[in-house]
Amino acid sequence: MVVIYGINELLNPIKAQLSEVIQASMTDVLGLPENKRAHRIVPLDRSNFYYPDGRTDAYTVIEINMMQGRTPATKKALIMALFQNIESALGISPTDIEITIKEQPKHCWGFLGMTGDDVKDLTYQVNV
């Protein structure tokens, strides 16, 4: 699952395209199928979104929640692809993008009526 935060008047107009770019990056790097999209867009009022000095109002936070299993090289490749693809498609500088990958053990995930460690028929690999 991906959660994206930004200032509402800047995030709302680009949210569909940003979701497309994020999903394409995750498909390319992680091998996720296109239909495995689970994005939550959280536009915030400017008064509720503080960010570091040196950033612009385009500052965007992307939290990626995933099951453990990807190598550090794969996760780094995903982060770099996101920086490059978002800047190319939307013109948001990597300086204004913050990405956090949060991993949980497979048994901490629940979907399809079971825990992640019990699922045997995923259409993608977790250990990449």
Rank of each mutant, 00 (worst) to 15 (best):
25 S>I: 04
13 P>T: 00
62 I>H: 04
91 G>F: 08
42 V>L: 13
45 D>L: 07
5 Y>Q: 14
125 Q>L: 13
1 M>E: 10
5 Y>W: 13
60 T>L: 11
73 A>E: 15
25 S>W: 05
116 G>V: 02
95 T>Y: 10
96 D>E: 11
34 E>V: 13
62 I>A: 06
10 L>M: 00
125 Q>K: 05
112 L>K: 10
126 V>S: 09
90 L>Y: 06
1 M>I: 06
55 R>M: 11
64 I>R: 00
124 Y>N: 03
13 P>E: 07
24 A>T: 01
82 L>H: 01
65 N>I: 00
36 K>E: 14
102 K>F: 11
58 A>E: 12
112 L>T: 10
17 Q>Y: 00
104 Q>F: 13
117 D>K: 00
44 L>T: 06
21 V>E: 09
84 Q>P: 00
83 F>I: 03
59 Y>A: 10
69 G>H: 07
37 R>C: 08
111 F>K: 01
49 F>W: 15
35 N>D: 14
114 M>S: 12
85 N>Q: 12
74 T>A: 15
121 D>E: 11
98 E>T: 12
34 E>Q: 14
40 R>Y: 10
68 Q>W: 06
74 T>E: 12
60 T>D: 08
121 D>W: 01
46 R>G: 09
123 T>R: 05
91 G>Y: 06
68 Q>S: 14
26 M>L: 15
90 L>D: 08
26 M>R: 13
5 Y>S: 13
46 R>I: 14
74 T>Y: 09
98 E>Q: 14
27 T>P: 01
70 R>E: 10
120 K>G: 02
95 T>D: 15
5 Y>I: 01
30 L>H: 04
118 D>L: 14
70 R>N: 09
122 L>S: 01
83 F>Y: 15
66 M>E: 12
74 T>D: 10
76 K>R: 13
118 D>T: 05
31 G>E: 04
62 I>P: 05
100 T>F: 10
124 Y>D: 04
63 E>I: 00
63 E>V: 01
101 I>S: 01
51 Y>F: 15
39 H>G: 08
1 M>Q: 09
26 M>D: 08
55 R>C: 13
4 I>P: 02
50 Y>A: 15
68 Q>V: 11
76 K>F: 07
13 P>A: 00
37 R>I: 08
74 T>W: 07
18 L>E: 05
19 S>P: 03
31 G>C: 07
100 T>M: 06
110 G>T: 02
83 F>L: 08
7 I>K: 00
76 K>Y: 07
98 E>W: 14
80 M>E: 15
120 K>H: 06
84 Q>N: 11
57 D>Q: 10
6 G>Y: 02
72 P>I: 04
117 D>Q: 02
22 I>W: 02
30 L>S: 05
112 L>C: 12
7 I>E: 03
80 M>A: 14
43 P>A: 09
